[in-house]
Design a protein around this nucleic acid. Structure first.
Length: 930
DNA sequence: GCCGACTCGTAC
DNA sequence: GACGTACGAGTCGGCT
């Protein structure tokens, strides 16, 4: 990163102290120091402050609410009336907090009769007016109304940063100047301001998008239909008041201005005393450390919490985007003449690495036709080479065959590095046009994914907005959307150039920003360089290989399923005494629970009575209908999702089904599969397995399936180093049986099938962070009994218990967990105030190292096997990956060789403390190969 | 017709 | 509320 120029703008940070104190208090466990004084909130605030100060802003104010009535209380006596008094444990931390804030050199602002919000608003506007860059640090969404050039919002809870209209629009769906109206419609339960009933952010944003302002929404209230319209009309009288209450004042009288808030030198002795008293060890170390630099996680993604308390410095995109070359519009050239083309070829040849992007007429890379290619060699410029634009008046374009022939040596040259965004798609398109791209070295989608799998979407538009502060030309802008869209070949070459060349240019700019972030953390760099990038061409080949499907067999199955569905439907109609839509959970619920008065034992997440399998099973003894519905559902699922769908997905050219693997799909690092999803083909039921029988090998070939045995449990053994678990895997025993023997205190041979089943449920449940409640439900036993099992398990496998606690703690301390290979997963909700969210994040934290390491391992195996298969492409193909399984299509005479080689490469894809066992099977179809 | 929220169910 | 990670079919209500 370059040094700040002498003319760098002055910076003011306004900290919403009250909101932080409350947030930290509720987000953190009730910690105390050795003397028993509460320190949890203090700890959170202190860490947040240290992170904020790391960037040494010139001016800082820590603003807190003052006691006393404000104008809002006068206007609306119920304002904040539902707010409980400050808990004693929190009150006790206020004074120490102020002492620390002072000692850090910050100014505390507390103005009688004025809320902190209005103080902040006033200072922000004044500072911005004086050319000072303002950052408001708060968890309160209301401040979004203040965002404008020079005023940014940082939310340390979510790690988000709102610094432009676009960012506010992305988050709330409205512009900053509409936020007040949005809040007025939504209301605010925390402040006891009722809004329009049932109107949340979505509805409010929709109305404002439509009418523009609250006044216009009010004016059109009669025209809004439905229940929500009634609610709106009922709320009309109070909306103007709401607006007044939610408007942050920016003109209150203050005796100090922005430049009076200079950040002073900190008072080291005072800090040392305070930190020591409250037991803030890390803060103390920093105080004594060389140069007294705040410790940080250098490579943690910007804006993601990464300190002990979960608060982060919020250096995000803009800090990275200060190089104007990276956020300014680019200059783009349309290549129509051979002179232009030659000039660009020369540039590409001279470049150390260039970016490219293909434009086509389809999202499906296995049938897309190439329409043009774009390139860039340096940020700010790019070229678009149109090859197949075809509309009345379209200019003559260079000959496609000749142009591709000229490009091929560059793209195929292993000595020349190429980059792209989601380049697997382009690799497909170019391969189908006779060009094999080699040395595809960088992919900005994967850089973003490895850097932070959860923080954002990884599409180029989002990344450009986030990391460059740049709004790209959207596909819809040039080609329209939906039914009104036109194929890219009919997009004007001018529009196409704006869009396509920009993509290549933006890819290059993004790489400049993202690459250092990835390279800064050795684990991330490893995952990116050694796993994700080498995997790209491997996945491209697996997808291109496709898998052969017996479509006729599936159609026969569809017909059979259809008959049985009809029978079930007739039976259901008979039992119900009337017709109803068996596919409608809503209608079914009315029938079962309202009309037939069957007990509604299970609720959906939204509180409605559920008709899911568990609910139907529970009432199956009271009535025949639930059983029939279950039968129908099973058949219907198989037909609509699989036997009807798969034959449709057979590629016309290849006669095979080509799934698409999403490398940046699952946050844990797993692949995801779609169009069609071939990672959820049924296996558990007999009817389901018949579908696998339709995944076949051609004449003379076999299907070979190799899968890791219990890979995630083995990784748990590796990570936990639990002696008993390690021993069990070392011995090669049936792990669930061994667990049952251990837990129930029996010899392996004496374990009953029920005990093994229970042990299996525990083993799996633990990896998902399941509790006693879930285990009880799973096994149909009492919760107390389930709790006993779990306690017994942990007493036998204390290493596992310690590992889980360690993992939770790590997630809380640093905000992320890691796989064995260094992949990181950030847990955004690990400090959430909402207990449900927080518990969910803890479960994800426990699962991610295991699921993620397993994903890393099979990816490594795929790369290794693909390397070997390169010399045997005519005899064997890798055709599917299903998380712990690889499926191959192999010449009959080559099966033994492949099985031996694949199993060896899979087993040795990682060196864990336990062996990696690989099972394999061979057959005429996928079912037989199991 | 298109879209999003919701419910349900398949895999590992 | 209660078991992690995905994708996708179908309904339903609201909109164009």
């Amino acid at each position: 990163m370059s040094n700040p120029a002498p003319t760098a703008p002055r910076r003011l940070v306004l900290i919403d102290g009250s909101s932080y104190l409350y947030r930290a208090f509720h987000a953190l466990p009730p910690l105390t120091n050795d003397a028993g004084e509460p320190t949890g909130a203090l700890f959170g605030v202190v860490n947040m402050l240290r992170a904020t100060l790391k960037e040494r802003p010139e001016f800082v104010a820590f603003v807190v609410d003052a006691p006393g009535k404000t104008f809002r209380d006068d206007l609306y006596p119920e304002y904040k009336a539902n707010r409980a008094a400050m808990p004693d444990d929190l009150r006790a931390q206020v004074q120490p907090m102020c002492e620390i804030v002072e000692a850090l050199g910050m100014t505390i602002l507390r103005v009688d009769g004025v809320e902190a919000d209005d103080v902040i608003g006033t200072l922000a506007l004044r500072a911005a007016g004086e050319g000072i860059d303002v950052t408001i640090s708060t968890g309160d969404k209301d401040f979004a109304q203040l965002v404008r050039p020079g005023i940014a919002l940082v939310n340390t809870m979510s790690g988000s940063r709102l610094d432009s209209d676009a960012a506010v629009i992305e988050k709330f769906g409205v512009r900053p100047d509409q936020i007040v109206d949005l809040l007025a419609l939504m209301g605010d339960s925390v402040d006891n301001i009722p809004g329009v009933d049932k109107c949340g952010p979505k509805t409010a944003a929709k109305w404002l998008g439509e009418y523009g302002t609250l006044d216009a929404v009010i004016a059109h209230a009669d025209g809004i239909k439905g229940k929500i319209g009634e609610n709106l009309r009922a709320a009309l009288p109070r909306l103007p008041l709401n607006r007044t209450l939610t408007t942050i004042h920016t003109d209150v009288e203050l005796d100090r201005g922005p430049t009076d808030l200079v950040l002073r030198e900190r008072h080291v002795d005072a800090l040392r005393t305070l930190y020591a008293r409250y037991g803030f060890k890390q803060a103390l170390r920093e105080l004594e450390g060389p140069g007294a630099v705040v410790e940080d996680h250098p490579g943690s993604p910007s804006g993601v919490r990464n300190t002990a308390a979960g608060y982060a410095r919020s250096a995000t995109a803009p800090a990275d985007a200060t190089d104007p070359a990276l956020s300014a519009p680019g200059e783009y050239e349309t290549v129509l003449t051979s002179e232009q083309f030659d000039r660009w070829l020369e540039r590409l040849r001279a470049a150390e690495e260039f970016s490219f992007d293909t434009e086509t007429d389809s999202l499906d890379p296995m049938q897309a036709r190439l329409v043009g290619i774009s390139f860039a060699v340096e940020p700010g410029s790019g070229a678009y080479l149109p090859l197949a634009h075809d509309y009345p008046g379209a200019p003559k374009q260079l000959d496609r065959t000749e142009a591709l022939a000229a490009l091929a040596p560059l793209l195929a040259d292993p000595a020349r590095k190429k980059m792209g965004h989601h380049g697997k798609y382009d690799l497909h398109v170019l391969r189908r046009n006779g060009i094999e791209v080699r040395n595809y070295a960088d992919d900005t989608m994967l850089e973003s994914f490895v850097f932070n799998a959860t923080a954002t979407r990884h599409d180029m538009d989002s990344l450009a907005r986030r990391y460059l502060g740049y709004e790209t030309v959207k596909y819809e802008d040039v080609a329209g959307k939906g039914a009104k869209s036109i194929p890219f070949s009919q997009v004007s070459i001018e529009d196409a150039t704006r869009y396509a060349a920009e993509d290549a240019d933006i890819t290059l700019r993004l790489h400049r920003v993202l690459s250092p972030k990835v390279e800064a953390v050795s684990g991330l760099a490893h995952v990116y360089r050694e796993i994700e990038m080498p995997l790209v061409p491997v996945l491209e080949r697996v997808e291109a290989n496709g898998v052969r499907i017996d479509a006729d067999e599936l159609r026969r199955q569809s017909a059979d399923l259809g008959k049985r569905m009809l029978a079930a439907q007739q039976k259901a109609t008979e039992l119900a005494g009337r017709t109803f839509n068996l596919d409608s959970p809503k209608q079914l619920g009315q029938l079962l629970f309202d009309e037939l008065k069957l007990p509604a034992l299970v609720k959906t997440p939204s509180g409605a009575p559920s008709t899911n399998e568990e609910a139907l099973e529970a009432i199956a003894e009271h009535h025949e209908l639930p059983r029939v519905i279950l039968e129908y559902r099973g058949l219907s699922k198989l037909r609509s999702t699989y036997t009807d769908k798969l034959p449709e997905m057979v590629n016309r050219d290849t006669g095979r089904v080509h799934t698409s693997y999403h490398q940046a799909g699952a946050a844990t690092g797993r692949l995801a599969s779609s169009d069609p999803n071939l990672q959820n083909i049924p296996i558990r039921t007999e009817d389901g397995r018949r579908i696998r029988q339709a995944f076949v090998a051609p004449q003379g070939r076999r299907i070979v399936a190799c899968d890791y045995s219990q890979i995630e449990l083995r990784i748990m053994a590796h990570l936990s180093e639990d002696p008993s678990l390690l021993r069990a895997f070392e011995s090669g025993a049936d792990i669930h049986r061994a667990t049952a023997a251990e837990v129930f205190g029996k010899a392996m041979d004496d374990v009953s099938s029920n005990e093994r089943r229970a042990a299996k449920a525990i083993n799996f449940g633990l990896m998902y962070g399941m509790g006693a409640f879930g285990l009880a439900r799973q096994l149909g036993i009492a919760r107390g009994e389930a709790q006993d099992y779990i306690a017994l398990y942990f007493s036998r496998y204390p290493g596992v218990r310690d590992f889980m606690e360690r993992t939770r703690q790590q997630a809380r301390d640093q905000g992320y967990v890691e796989t064995v290979f260094g992949r990181r997963l950030y847990l955004d909700n690990i400090h959430a105030r909402n207990a449900g969210l927080r518990a969910g994040a803890e479960r994800a934290a426990i699962n991610a190292p295991m699921q993620g390491t397993a994903a890393d391992i099979i990816k490594r195996a795929m790369i290794s096997i693909d390397g070997w298969l390169a010399d045997h492409a005519d005899r064997a193909l890798m055709v599917l990956q299903v998380h712990d399984e690889l499926v191959f299509e192999v010449e009959a005479g080559f099966v033994d060789t492949l099985v031996a080689e694949a199993r060896e490469r899979m087993s040795s894809a990682a060196g864990l403390r336990v062996p990696l066992v690989v099972d394999s099977g061979v057959g005429a179809n996928w079912d037989e190969a199991h």
